[in-house]
Amino acid sequence: MVVLPYFLSEMMERKCCGGVTPNTCKNLVNKGYIKATKYTPDKPQLFVIQYLSSGTIKDIEEGRVTVKGYSKDGGIVAENLESRMAMPKTQWNNELHDARDYGTKILKEILGEARFDFPKSLYAVRDCLKLFTLEKPNAIIIDFFAGSGTTMHAVNLLNAEDGGHRRCIMVTNNEVSADETKMLKDKGYQPGDEEWEKLGIAHYVTWPRTVCSIEGHDVNGKQLKGDYLGSEPPMHMSDGFRANVAFFKLGFLNPTAVSLGMRFSEMLPTLWLKTGAKGKCPELSGKQVPDMLILPENQFAVLINENTFANFAEKLAEHPEIQTVFLATDYEVNYQSMVKNLNVTEAYQLYRDYLDHFRVNRGRN
């Protein structure tokens, strides 16, 4: 039996209880779905009234939730009979989300010093990613403001925990702090100088943290200490992760030089990314650009000299796993004719498609 405070009894007779009518309130009391907590004598409402939502009540009455007993304050103690996905709450109370202990301290262990202010907790970011990619083990996560690189670290940790193959793309500038800017300018350095660039966030924080967390050591080559918390079985930080990573510097290419095929080497990483970044990013050996590239490991191919198309098509037929091709030609008719003679799912015309997709401030002269 639940003994109701006078205030709740009066509410049942004369008033509404937080949106619950008197009759509904009586029914909730009879079934044990309502309780009065936290006595507040200095306020007009002497007790805080809590009751179960209609959805929870429905789960109990339809058998999806079983009642185990009652707490000291009269509240129901219950548990779900089956696990199910639920929307996250707006407020989390998890000690692993502490940014000082599991953000700043972890980063300092890797870098050996405080190079970045207020990094996020590794575990807070992991838990956020887990909410949205738990059933998407092949998701691509893009962080346009990478900062200290916590997102990449968290993606690798989540993959290690559940066997996923999620990929992460981090984007950051290479700016230096205000204090470092003043110090560098006082010494006569300018942006672009080696001394300036090496202190930029990408080179000084994001990239070192990424490499060290994957390889399991700090910037001085010493093994990282401790375990990743909340993981079963426990994972040692020194074990690192089974992951590959590549660093690219974003730059601007002259569109005329691109259209003439004079910047193909610089374009190749972009083509690799566009086709899913499979395998190791291909590189050209030497300055001379070949007539074609057949890249089974990367699952794409490039025809650079259209006069060698027949040979290109013959070699491509030997690799049915390649379903994406880039064809360099200035003529739309030639491009369409070549595509018709290839058994692939995706084809792009170089250098038109590249210029259309990656042009900055398009439409301006």
Rank of each mutant, 00 (worst) to 15 (best):
V3W: 13
L8R: 03
M11R: 04
R14V: 08
G19A: 15
V20I: 15
V29R: 07
G32T: 15
Y33M: 04
A36F: 12
T37I: 15
Y39N: 10
Y39Q: 02
T40S: 09
P44V: 09
Q45E: 10
L52Q: 08
S54L: 12
G55A: 09
R64T: 04
V67D: 09
G69C: 14
Y70M: 11
D73S: 13
G74P: 04
R84K: 15
P88H: 07
W92D: 03
Y102C: 02
L107D: 01
K108P: 00
E109T: 06
I110W: 00
G112P: 03
G112L: 12
R115S: 00
F116I: 02
D117N: 10
F118G: 01
K120G: 00
K120A: 02
S121T: 08
V125P: 01
L129F: 09
L129S: 04
L131F: 09
A139P: 00
I140S: 07
I140D: 05
I142G: 01
F144D: 01
F144H: 01
G147Q: 09
G147I: 14
S148D: 02
G149D: 04
T151N: 06
M152R: 02
H153N: 05
A154S: 13
V155L: 06
V155W: 08
N159Q: 08
D162T: 08
G164C: 06
R166G: 04
R166W: 07
C168P: 01
I169E: 03
M170T: 10
V176N: 07
V176A: 09
K182L: 14
M183K: 11
Y189L: 06
Q190C: 04
P191R: 13
P191T: 14
E194M: 09
E197R: 06
K198A: 03
L199P: 00
G200P: 00
H203G: 01
R209W: 00
R209G: 00
C212N: 05
I214C: 03
E215V: 09
H217R: 04
D218E: 05
V219C: 01
Q223T: 09
L224V: 09
Y228H: 12
E232G: 00
P233V: 12
P234H: 08
M235N: 03
M237T: 08
D239S: 15
G240S: 08
G240M: 11
R242H: 07
V245H: 13
F247W: 09
L253Y: 11
N254K: 10
T256I: 11
A257L: 13
V258D: 02
V258R: 02
S259A: 13
F264C: 05
E266T: 11
L271A: 09
K274T: 08
K274E: 15
A277C: 07
K280M: 11
P282H: 11
D291T: 11
I294D: 05
I294K: 07
P296I: 14
P296Y: 12
N298K: 07
A301V: 15
A301C: 14
V302I: 15
A313G: 01
A313H: 03
E314C: 10
L316R: 01
L316I: 02
E318T: 07
H319G: 01
I322G: 03
T324C: 12
T324R: 14
F326N: 03
E332C: 05
V333P: 02
Q336L: 14
S337K: 15
V339A: 08
N341V: 07
R352E: 03
L355M: 10
H357W: 15
G363W: 11
R364Q: 14
N365Y: 13
